[in-house]
C-alpha cells in the first residue's frame, strides 16, 4: 500500500482562528514549505473549520482576516486545502471560504500522506 501515499506533507489545523497563534504558525509553516516547492497540503478539522467561515472581519478585533490570508495559499503553491465534512457540518460552515475539498478525515485519509503534522 505504500505506493498509495504521496510525498505531500499534511498540516492539520484544528484550533479556532484568532484565539491564539497556533493556527497562524501552522499556516506560516505551510507557506514556508511551499516557498521551497515542498509539496504541502492543509486539513481543517474540528474547531479549525472556523477558519473557513465566510463573512469574517478581523478588523473588528484589530487583526487580519484569516480566511483572506488563507486565500493566498494556492497562489503560493500549497497544493490542496481539505476540510473534514463532519466538522464543517458541526459548525455550520456550508460554503467554505476559500474553497476546500471536503473529505472524511478518518484514518484512511491520513494514510494517504507520508507525513502528517498537527501543530
Amino acid at each position: 500500500m505504500s505506493d498509495a501515499t504521496t510525498k505531500t506533507l499534511l498540516i492539520v489545523i484544528d484550533s479556532p482562528p484568532y484565539g491564539d497563534w497556533r493556527g497562524r504558525e501552522a499556516l506560516d509553516m505551510a507557506f514556508s514549505l511551499a516557498a521551497f516547492d515542498q509539496p504541502v497540503a492543509l486539513l481543517f478539522r474540528g474547531e479549525g473549520v472556523n477558519w473557513l467561515r465566510p463573512g469574517q472581519d478581523g478588523a473588528s478585533i484589530n487583526q487580519k482576516t484569516v480566511s483572506r490570508n488563507l486565500g493566498a495559499a494556492r497562489m503560493f503553491g500549497v497544493s490542496e486545502l481539505f476540510a473534514d465534512t463532519a466538522s464543517l457540518a458541526r459548525f455550520g460552515v456550508e460554503r467554505p471560504q476559500p474553497e476546500v475539498e471536503p473529505v472524511v478525515a478518518d484514518a484512511a485519509f491520513y494514510t494517504r500522506f507520508q507525513e502528517v503534522i498537527q501543530p
Partner: peptide
C-alpha cells in the same frame, strides 16, 4: 487588498 498580507518572503 485581497489577502491582507504582504507576500511573506522573496520566493513567495
Amino acid at each position: 487588498k485581497e489577502h491582507e498580507i504582504s507576500p511573506p518572503s522573496n520566493r513567495l
